[in-house]
Design a protein around this nucleic acid. Structure first.
Ligand SMILES: Nc1ccn([C@H]2C[C@H](O)[C@@H](COP(=O)(O)OP(=O)(O)OP(=O)(O)O)O2)c(=O)n1
Length: 1105
DNA sequence: CCAGGGACTCAG
DNA sequence: CATCGCTGAGTCCCTGG
């Protein structure tokens, strides 16, 4: 559970950038080479040779400066363009020392842990987080030991001569796989405490210890002669100050990616269950983790998973079959979403996930910083010239990753960062590669075609984060700027109006000097170059930045029109492919024509508005004239920066064979969403499920390994009625939503879930109403964090006949849900569920589903290639943007595309499922419901309950109290969703017996939920209809009779004294509703259907109820 | 007319 | 072996009250 617990680079020891675990294989060697001080200035004009000599620990090493000249000989004519590579070392040093004290005092919480020992720093110079580490050029393996020695000396000097105990003296340590702490940190610690560190295991026996938190079976064999220990061994040894016995930290077996965790596969391993259990436990409760109490999710989760295991292994032959399948797949490393550890692994490797996470964290951080500011922002003086800076690292990933390879020259070798060779994306490529036509986002196959000698580097997410933090820390502590607005991990907007206007040298020269200084300072802290664009607004600053790149600066303050006219419109912010296409069409140009800003300027405001809409039209009109009033002041943006949604998207590795596999995954992403919501202390009221389905014409397997290929999208959303963040509730809802979308599991290629209508838990607490399920922990402790209550024993509930719902509702939601399931299972809430064996066990008894679906119960049919009568699809078939990569011409550009949708959508059922929340007091019968129980139900169930109540109320109003059999109206009918066509059962080896037992189970469970699910009812009605169409009246009647019989039996059981049904008033009420629902179905749907058939065929049957 | 929400677009 | 195609915001436009 280390995900999201790393990256203490900034702040009061708590994580700032919540970086997902980064895999070791791409982690940089931070300390492989050392330089004791920054003695050169890379921007020195004299560095024409682009080479400089630096003394590295007595050894002369050639380094390439980052002078922009080696990039290209591009010339910029503007007077304001400062030639790249100015000497600014004086500013650099002076400023740094000046700001140090301020920094220490005022921004105390921003001091990274690494630099906490301030006296040490005085003697050696300021440590800016990781900035100084980053200035060490990385070395090759051969130089490793030397570099380590240098580091030790440097560190010793930094600490004023004191050294740590050589605990690891004599130890040669190698790290394998992902560890906590990271490989870099372990490396540093090993060196610091007298050990040796090796990166590669070239010769057998070279290492004395291998540190490894997780071990794949293959590695297990490979390392069997080594002392393989957990990273904790190192941590504990250091904290104890002595070398601890390694065997106490032996890595025996752990849940690893690529290894099945289901009980079945564990039988194969000769490992004692207890041992594993213990290790799992120790992983869950991490006392050293400063945030561990903020997240006891792992505990809940793990327990659930264990539960799942148990239920799985008990659930009969169907699952053994599935287990076998899994096991086989596992044997050759299952890399898709069927793997239980897929999600964690995927996010650890996903660059886009990292980018998004970083961005969100940065936003939150700066927003919080503003909110915490006690001093009200001084009213700013009005200056004539607004000055906005846009700062961006040059080819960020490529530059940062290249630092791990001292043998490469970012200015000479074509470099790209990517995971693979062929269909893998180029995340970032340097300017050499770009000169060959390689672009960010391009596939490797194409990139290599354009540039065969392209050098591919691994990602190093930790390094990116480090450099980013170094930059932001620096910008904050400089206290130059009126506003700092983070755009992304490598990009920032700055307002330097006050500083530049106040300076006596004049605005222009001050801006240029400041830009130079920024570039120099940031380079010295990160060894990565940044470019700076500056102008009077955000738009122009951005365009200037583009002009400045790479490794340059540009201040645009005059001749704006001239500057703008020849820039492609595409370069404007917010103008993407779609708008450009419309624009091209509007100016009547050829498709291949690149529309320029000057082209845009020719269009009237009216015209622009009519093509692009009100806001976009105005924006484009202004952009064409260099006008932009976007604010970058977080203070003024205020609410605009407040989060409006939280989502988890996975459009990679989505491959399922069965619905139960999908259900497990849906629970997994629900848990992920829950974790994110908890971190944000937020709840939401709406959930949206977005599914990507393989497009009909797309091949089963797309070109990209485990990619999504060409897909069609479908969305469906639901409201919870009350805010929640509980993964159980979310998971149940998602399962329900999936079933409504009618997409066969094996066609799925992508899954996204989004929580909206967010509310802060604190706010909810403040003005909470009665019994809101999230109103936990309202204790006096003003804890900011949502701390779930300790798990209480299920036994407590088992022994109570009457459940105290008050107590129940004070439990964390996930526990509530667990308990609820437990109660269900033990027959306390729904005593019947257990006594009736669940029919047809294809569906996994996954937790959280409190609704039994017939669809779920008979999915076998669905998977056997059944045709569909109607399938809900997204009214608008959106072609995913990614398609552009594969077939640029795919996207339809017809501007009328959208206008069609109204008609279409009218023909189709609404894709949003409304769950009405009527005023309870309106209906007296609702008084018998405990709202807290109601609230805890999945909304799909709530919907049913409310609907029944509403109908009842309506009928009551219309016909008075005595009207007993409410009629179905058109509204009810219109609520029907198109359904999957049922397979013809008689062609299958389905017996009427199995059909009956299925129905029995369905009826008994549905009663406890206030009636059957609408979809299931429709399924059944469809089925009966089909039977009748085939003149199979016998079977229709048989089903009808069976339903009647079952309901009769249930009602007897219900009314008998002491029945578990009547144990609880709420259950009783729900069951009553359930009976009425069923009655309604029989009277209004089944009977008329059969009667109609009989009349048509002149048959007489008994349809009395 | 307005609020709410789905679809689409964009950016790094 | 592949490979890690996320995620939040803004805008347009429709719908329902
Ligand atoms: N399709 C993309 C675009 C960007 N990135 C990542 C890698 C980039 O290094 C980083 C920053 O993106 P930029 O657009 O700023 O591009 P670069 O920094 O690579 O180049 P430059 O800013 O010099 O144009 O985001 C990515 O993974 N995939």
């Amino acid at each position: 559970m280390s995900q999201g617990k790393k990256g203490n680079f900034i702040g009061d020891g708590t994580s700032f950038l919540n970086t997902p675990t980064s895999p070791t294989k791409m982690v940089a060697t931070r300390f492989s080479s050392i330089r004791s001080s920054i003695s050169h200035d890379p921007f020195d004009d004299d560095l024409d040779s682009a080479l400089m000599k630096i003394d590295v620990g007595g050894e002369v090493k050639e380094l390439v400066s980052a002078s922009s000249r080696s990039y290209s000989n591009r010339s910029i004519s503007s007077d304001d363009m400062i030639p790249c590579g100015q000497v600014v070392s004086k500013i650099d040093n002076g400023n740094e020392t000046d700001n140090d004290e301020n920094d220490e005092e005022e921004e105390d919480q921003d001091v990274p842990p690494e630099s906490s020992s301030s006296e040490d720093e005085v003697s050696i110079g300021k440590l800016h987080g990781f900035g100084d580490y980053a200035t060490y050029f990385q070395n090759k393996t051969a130089k490793q030991q030397k570099a380590d020695k240098d580091y030790l000396e440097w560190e010793t000097k930094r600490r004023g001569g004191s050294t740590e105990r050589p605990i690891f003296s004599g130890c040669v340590i190698h790290v394998n796989g992902h560890t906590v702490p990271s490989i870099n940190e372990i490396h540093r610690l090993v060196i610091l405490y007298g050990g040796k560190f090796i990166h590669y295991l070239h010769n057998k026996g070279a290492a004395t210890h291998i540190i490894c938190d997780k071990l794949t079976p293959r590695k297990m064999i490979q390392f069997k002669n080594y002392k393989v220990v957990k990273a904790q061994w190192l941590v504990d040894s250091i904290s104890k100050g002595e070398l601890l016995d390694w065997s106490d930290y032996r890595v025996i077996e752990d849940v690893v990616y690529g290894q099945q965790r289901l009980g079945f596969s564990k039988l194969e391993d000769k490992i004692e269950e207890e041992e594993v259990e213990k290790q799992v436990q120790s992983e869950i409760i991490m006392p050293n983790d400063p945030e561990s109490d903020d997240e006891m999710i792992p505990l809940t989760q793990s327990q659930n998973e264990q539960n799942e295991e148990v239920t799985l292994s008990q659930s009969g032959e169907a699952h053994i079959e599935e287990l076998n399948t899994n096991f086989e797949l596992t044997a050759n490393r299952q890399l898709d979403a069927r793997n239980p550890d897929f999600l964690e692994h995927f996010f650890a490797y996903s660059r886009l996930h990292h980018l998004s996470t970083w961005k969100a964290e940065l936003r939150a951080r700066f927003l919080k910083k503003i909110l915490n500011e006690t001093t009200p922002s001084q009213e700013k003086k009005k200056y004539d010239v607004r000055v906005v800076f846009h700062v961006d690292f040059d080819c960020f990933f490529a530059a940062a990753s290249a630092l791990n390879r001292p043998d490469l020259d970012i200015n000479k070798d074509p470099i790209a960062v990517s995971h693979g060779q062929r269909t893998s994306d180029v995340a970032s490529c340097n300017y050499i590669a770009r000169s060959k036509g390689v672009k960010n986002g391009m596939w490797m196959a194409q990139a290599r075609k354009l540039c065969p000698e392209l050098i591919i580097l691994d990602y190093d997410f930790e390094a990116y984060e480090r450099h980013s933090n170094a930059m932001y820390d620096y910008l904050i502590q400089s206290e130059i700027f009126d506003a700092i607005f983070p755009v992304s991990v490598d990009e920032v907007l700055l307002d330097a109006t006050s500083y530049c206007n106040a300076n006596a040298d004049g605005v222009t020269s001050t801006v240029n000097a400041l830009a130079t200084k920024l570039r120099s300072d940031i380079f010295s802290k990160t060894s990565c170059t940044v470019s700076v664009g500056a102008s009077k607004n955000v738009l122009l600053a951005k365009l200037s930045l583009r002009r400045a790149k790479p490794n340059g600066q540009y201040y645009l303050h005059e001749n704006f029109e001239e500057f703008l006219e020849n820039i492609p419109a595409r370069n404007l912010p917010g103008i993407g492919g779609s708008i450009v296409r419309k624009l091209t069409a509007a100016i009547g140009a050829d498709v291949n024509h690149v529309p320029l800003i000057s082209d845009l300027g020719k269009l009237s405001l009216m015209k622009l508005k009519s093509i692009f809409g009100e806001k976009t039209g105005i924006k484009l009109f202004n952009y064409a004239r260099g006008i932009d009033d976007t604010s970058i002041d977080i203070r003024r943006k205020g609410d605009a920066l407040k989060r409006k949604s939280v989502s988890v998207d996975v459009n990679y590795g989505i491959r399922f064979d069965t619905v139960s596999q999908l259900d497990i995954f849906l629970i997994d992403i629900s848990k992920e969403l829950y974790r994110r919501l908890i971190r944000l202390t937020m709840c939401g009221t709406s959930i949206t499920l977005r599914l990507a389905r393989r497009a009909p014409e797309a091949p089963i397997e797309p070109e990209k390994f485990l990619g999504m290929g060409h897909c069609v999208f479908a969305n469906k959303s639901a409201k919870f009625g009350v805010p929640t963040n509980d993964w159980g509730i979310i998971g149940s809802e998602l399962k329900a939503l999936y079933r409504m979308l009618n997409i066969p599991v094996h066609e799925l290629r992508g899954i996204s879930i989004t929580m909206t209508n967010l509310e802060d838990v604190e706010n909810i607490k403040k003005n909470r109403q009665m019994k809101l399920p999230f109103a936990l922990n309202t204790g006096e402790n003003d804890s900011n964090k949502l701390k779930p209550s300790p798990v209480s024993s299920p036994r407590k509930f088992e022994e109570e006949n009457d459940i105290d719902w008050e107590v129940f509702n004070c439990l964390p939601l996930s526990i509530q849900l667990e308990q609820r399931e437990e109660l269900l299972r033990r027959g306390i809430i729904p005593p019947e569920v257990d006594s009736h064996p669940q029919p047809i066990m294809e569906s996994t008894p996954t937790r959280g589903t409190s609704k039994v679906y017939m669809q779920q119960l008979i999915p076998k049919m669905e998977e056997e290639g059944v045709s569909y009568t109607k399938v809900i699809e997204s009214p608008t078939r959106r072609s995913p943007t990614k398609r552009k990569l594969q077939s640029p011409s795919y996207k339809q550009t017809s501007p009328s595309k959208r206008r069609q949708s109204p008609i279409k959508s009218r023909l189709q059922s609404p894709s949003r499922m409304e769950i009405p929340r009527p005023n309870y007091s309106t209906y007296d019968e609702t008084g018998s419901y405990d709202e807290s129980v109601f609230n805890a139900l999945p909304s799909s169930v709530q919907k049913e309950v409310l609907f029944t109540l509403e109908e009842k109320a309506k009928n009551k109003m219309a016909y008075g109290h005595h009207k007993s059999a409410p009629v179905l109206d058109s509204k009810w009918l219109s609520r029907k969703h198109p359904l999957v066509k049922l397979p013809l059962f008689q062609n299958k080896p389905t017996t009427i017996g199995s059909m009956k037992s299925l129905i029995s189970g369905w009826i008994s469970s549905s009663l406890l939920q206030g009636g059957p699910h609408l979809d299931d009812v429709n399924m059944m009605l469809d089925y009966i209809e089909k039977l009748l169409q085939q003149d199979n009246l016998l079977r229709s009647m048989s089903i009808f009779q069976h339903i009647k019989t079952r309901l009769f039996c249930e009602s007897i059981s219900f009314e008998s004294v002491g029945s578990p049904y009547t144990e609880n008033q709420d259950t009783k009420a729900l069951v009553e509703v359930g009976f009425k629902e069923w009655r309604q179905i029989i009277v209004s749907s089944i009977v008329p259907m059969i009667q109609r058939y009989c009349i048509e065929h002149d048959i007489e049957v008994d349809t009395s109820t």
